[in-house]
Each structure stands twice: as structure tokens, then as C-alpha cells.
Design a binder for these strands. Structure first.
Lengths: 123, 123, 123, 123
DNA sequence: GTGGTCTAGACCACC
DNA sequence: GTGGTCTAGACCACG
């Protein structure tokens, strides 16, 4: 359900955070739902549990998860709203990459066409 | 002439490489021209000479510069063509950031509007 | 396992690269194996970690190593093939030295005898 | 008469020294002959006169040239014998390159075949 | 003056 | 623990 790109320079825990925020934003995870357990998710993604734990910890600090004793992590009631904040980071990531590309001499139309290719990738 | 963003997570030497590639791509540096000396550029950018040296070394390996002993760096005849490769990397950087953002649940129109803000930043 | 000649004019990081490529070429390091950590190798060779890091970075760019964040360097699946390219450079180094010597008036048999002395150096 | 390889990593002044020593060793320059003037040789080789001057200075120190006031440089009577010393450096250059190549995993027969290709290059 | 190498040591991010 | 980046400063070789 979450797609990782291990070869990418984007930190794995960031990709996990983004993936989970995305599931919330898209309504596939609703407030009150159980989040997958750290160990389960780690083994499914073939990733170090510490890495998943870090993503969960930060999502908890953002108010998207709630840690309930003995029950694991639950999607917080305020998650949908809280997820918005994370989206801003992602938008800025795109903006920074675009800025770098333009400074590096990529013509603006080429940037747009790259983007368009991404848009069509998987519907 | 080259703009650095020291707060960015993008390594300084990468920003320098992108800037120089951009100058070549835009025709402000033509094959045969002297590149600024490492020390001169370093002091202009207020950066350690080693950092500039690393950027130059990698540009040399990419075939954009030619280092001549004791004479400094010269833009290689093949620079314009070689610079194209670098542009592709930058485009892919934008594409990857966009992919991450979409996975994270950022609505596509928001991505486009972020981009548009960048477009208007500096004429 | 890697022999350095600190008095040589050949840069240390180049000697390290050659040594590691040699270990791959001889099969002592196989794809999937862990490369020694930068710090460990640096202290074993009594050399600055930065110097080893540079060698590793370049080997990564050549496709011989794969650097995984926080996990160290791993011999790439394509390492054996990629190592071939490096061997070619070394052969050309010998060829160039021989060319220089002949131009300088060294009789060809003397070149061969020098070489033969090297062959017998260490079994 | 002297062949330079400007792209080589071998210092130009070294190539010039080797070339002149070679001319002496081959008998094309005999004791008592005038050496070409620094400026003439520099312009013929399209090289900085300082570079040629350095080569001449070192050849003088080796006893191959004699600087005579107002007459320029003359091949010394002891030149033929003195040239031998320089040959030793060149032989060691080949030896060192071969050593590096072997450490880097080049099979010995490949080293020999590279050398053989050089031998056939220009008769 | 130029570029190249190396050291020392700091700080960061990641797992 | 790992690798990556950056700074500071020294020294060398070249033209």
C-alpha cells in the first residue's frame, strides 16, 4: 500500500511518513482506525523497525497518530486536519526542486513536461 | 552570478555545479572561456575553496570543464552537449519531488500552484 | 590487505581505489559483501577518513559500491563488470609510462627487465 | 622532434626533459652541439617559455647541458654518461605503474600485452 | 598565480 | 554505529 524507493536520496522514514499521510488524506485511513503495527509494517516494507518507529513517532508529534497503551497506534480524530501541515512540506519540496532546476538552466517548459509525465504515471 | 541557498538541504557543491551548468546552458559561458578560478569563486560565494574544488572536479569528470595545470579551468568544447546530461538530473529531481508529494496526498492542482509561485519568483 | 605506498606520487585515494578494485577483480570481495567501513579502513591504513571517503565516493560513482545510508557500503551486483573499466585505466598507465621511457631513450630491453624485477617482487 | 602529450598527467617539463635526454641517448644531439634556444623550443612546442626554462635548468643540474655566457646552452661533454641517470627515473616510472596495475588486479599477461602494443606503436 | 592532495576536526542525517 | 558535508589550513606541483 505504501511505495518505497530505497534507491532515492529521500530518507526512508520520510517516505513512510508521506505514505501514511497520503492514506489519511485520501480517506483510506480514517480517524479511529488502527495504524499497522510497527513490526508488521517494517517487515512488509523490508525495512528496519527503527525506521518505521521514527516515522510513527513524528506522526504522533504531528497529531496524526495517537499512541494508546497496549493497543498500538490509532488514527487521531484530528488527523485529517493535521495531515494538511505535512502537505505543506511536500509542496515546498517540489518548489525547491523546481527552483534548483531553473537555476541549473532547465527551460521552464521542460520542467512542466516532466511534471506532466509524472501526472500520467499511475492513475 | 551564482545564487546559493545555504539553508537548503541541497549540498552547496551541488548548487555550484547546477549554477555553472546553468551558465553554460544559457550561453553565458561558452566553450573556450575561462571558468572563474576556484579561489576567486570561493571568496565571492563566501564558501570554502575545497567546496568549490569539489564541484569543479566533478564537472571536469562530466566533461564540462577541462583543468589545465597551473592555468585554471576552461570550458570544454563538449560542454554544451555534456551539460544536457546534468539538466536531465535536475528534471528528474523535480519529477521525484512531485511523485513524493502526490503519494503524500497533495492534490495535483496544489502542486501546480506551488510551481507557479516559483515561476514568478524572480524574472 | 591493501598496500599503500605513501612515498609514491600516486594519490593515496587512487591507491585505495586500485586496491579495492583489485580485491573485487580477484574475487576476495564479492557482490553483496560489505565493504570495510570508512572509519575502520582509515584507521587500519593510518590515513584520514576523508581520504578513504573520497575513494569510496568515486567507487560508488563507478558503480562498484552501493552506499546505503547508515548501513555502510556494499559491493554492487555489477561490481565485477564495472571493475573491468578500472583495470583498463591501470593498463594505460603502464603503457603511458613505457611510452615516456622509450621516448626518453631507455632501450626496450631495459624496460622489460625493470618489469621483470617487479614481477618477482612479492609472490 | 620532441613529442608532447598535453593531455597527459605527466608534467610538461618532464616530457621535455625526457625528450632531450632521449635525443642525447640516441646520438641525435652530441656533446658540443648547441641546444635549441629556450624561446625557439617553447614556440615550436607551443608551450610557456618558463616551462622549457625549468627543463633546461634541471638538465643543467644533471650535467647534461652547460650554460655558456652569451651562447646559450651547449651539450656537455659528459652528457652521454649523465643521461644514463635520467634513464633510471624513467625505468622506475614504468616499474611503479606496473606495481600499481598488479595491485589493482590486472593480470600480469595483460600488462605484458599492453606493453607489447606500445612496442609496436612507432618504429 | 593556478589546481590537487591531505589532514584535522566539527556537525548532520540515517539506521 | 554508519556515510555525507563543510570548514580550516597546510603543502606540493605546475606555468
Amino acid at each position: 500500500m505504501i511505495q518505497l524507493d530505497l534507491a532515492s536520496t529521500v530518507p526512508i522514514y520520510d517516505q513512510i511518513k508521506a505514505g501514511l499521510r497520503g492514506l489519511v488524506a485520501k480517506g483510506l485511513l480514517k480517524p479511529g482506525d488502527d495504524a499497522p503495527s510497527i513490526r508488521a509494517l517494517a517487515s512488509r516494507l523490508k525495512v528496519n523497525p527503527n525506521t518505521v518507529a521514527r516515522a510513527y513517532r513524528e506522526l504522533t508529534m504531528e497529531g496524526i497518530f495517537e499512541a494508546r497503551r497496549g493497543e498500538g497506534n490509532v488514527i487521531s480524530p484530528a488527523a485529517v486536519k493535521a495531515a494538511r501541515g505535512g502537505l505543506e512540506d511536500l509542496r515546498q519540496g517540489v518548489a525547491e526542486a523546481a527552483r534548483m532546476a531553473r537555476r541549473g538552466g532547465v527551460p521552464w517548459p521542460d520542467i512542466l513536461s516532466s511534471l506532466d509525465k509524472v501526472r500520467k504515471e499511475e492513475p
